[in-house]
Amino acid sequence: MTKIKLALCQMNVIDDKSANIKKASSMIVDSADNDADFIVLPEMFNCPYSNDKFIEYGEEEQDSQTLNTISQLAKENDVYILAGSIPERDGGKLYNTSYLFDKDGTIIAKHRKMHLFDIDVKDKITFKESDVLTAGDEFTIADTDFGKIGMGICYDVRFVELARIMAEKGASILFYPGAFNQTTGPAHWELLFRSRALDNQVFCVGVAPALNMDASYHSYGHSIVTNPWGEVIAQADEKEKLIICEIDLSAIKKVREELPVLKNKRKDLYEVVQK
């Protein structure tokens, strides 16, 4: 199978876990009704994006209201679901973690955000995830019916080495649930997704929460799909929206034959190494 129908669920996240899970569930069902094969939720889709809420909303994987609901929906609708991310508690630590469910509702991969969002843009935005979150240290490449996919979260997309390693390990689609803000989003969101797709000649997908002006953190939205030529083939605005987008993985082979960037690397001079 080379053609995949993706569903990007750009949902409005509020300060109510049950309501967020209900909204995610509704968008998943709508996606399935539109014959989606692979459904993607935003970063922190069950939780407002703030350090105090990460602590309050944190769940353990083995006893997670959120994950149990997504698992059941994947099974009932016979679809893959990449459950954006949630605050995951484990051994006294808190992680920003993304889970991939197969069509049986089984967790087949999980990615803990590797690069924590610690920034200070003068007079615009300051945020320090490391005050409450612990960084992950695993590369996440999963086998699906459509081939291998790579998983990152938000700030991870800025690091070219991570994307290159996932692509070199055979990932044909790189997924980054993310929540860029009103400063970094307009400047870098589209540019980064086009660049990671172009750099590695893969598809690259970002799914964000919708803009909620009542929240303390204002998401940029603009969930996006970019292709191996570096083009945007689907993108939302800042409002809540369900994007259904079909991609054809055969485009990867075509682009790599026409413009053999990966083949023409000077491996005798440089390489990206996973430690």
Rank of each mutant, 00 (worst) to 15 (best):
S172M: 12
I14P: 05
S130L: 06
I86T: 01
I81W: 07
Y99K: 00
V29E: 15
E43Q: 14
K267G: 15
F159D: 12
N264F: 06
N68K: 08
R256I: 10
E88F: 00
S130Y: 03
I252E: 01
G152H: 03
R256W: 08
K5G: 04
G91E: 06
N20G: 02
K122M: 11
L174P: 05
E129I: 04
V132W: 03
I153V: 15
A19H: 10
T226R: 03
L8I: 01
I81E: 03
L100E: 03
R164W: 12
L67I: 05
K169I: 01
Y99R: 01
K239W: 01
A142T: 02
S216K: 13
H111T: 02
D123F: 12
F146M: 08
W189F: 15
K253R: 12
K113F: 08
H188E: 14
A208L: 10
A74Y: 10
Y270L: 12
D123Q: 09
L94F: 05
I107A: 04
I125G: 06
L116F: 00
D137R: 03
L133Y: 03
S98H: 02
D118I: 01
D118K: 07
A7E: 07
S71N: 08
I108T: 03
M114S: 02
D15P: 01
R196Q: 15
S50G: 10
R256G: 11
A215N: 15
F175G: 07
A19M: 13
K128P: 05
I243P: 07
L133H: 02
S64N: 03
D268G: 11
I125D: 00
Y95I: 04
A197T: 01
P186L: 10
D30L: 14
L8S: 04
D123I: 04
K110F: 00
R196S: 14
S172F: 04
A83F: 05
K275C: 10
G170V: 09
Y270D: 15
G185R: 06
C9Y: 02
E168M: 14
P48T: 00
A187I: 15
G150S: 00
K23C: 11
K253C: 10
V13I: 14
Y270G: 10
K265M: 14
L94H: 06
V79Q: 08
I55S: 06
E231W: 02
F139V: 13
Y270T: 12
A24Q: 04
V272E: 09
L162E: 12
Q235H: 04
V79W: 07
T66D: 04
G84A: 07
V205S: 08
A24D: 03
N227Q: 00
Q182I: 11
D248K: 04
I153M: 08
H222V: 07
N96S: 13
I4V: 15
D33C: 08
Y217L: 07
L249F: 05
L249D: 05
K148Q: 10
K53Q: 12
V207K: 00
D248G: 06
A19Y: 09
Q274L: 13
D131V: 10
L262K: 12
E43T: 13
F101D: 01
I125M: 12
L100Q: 02
A19E: 14
K93E: 10
T134L: 05
L249M: 03
N46A: 14
P260Q: 04
F146I: 08
M151A: 07
Y95Q: 03
V160F: 11
S26Y: 13
M11E: 11
I14C: 09
K148V: 09
D63F: 13
N34Y: 09
S26G: 11
D268L: 04
P177Y: 01
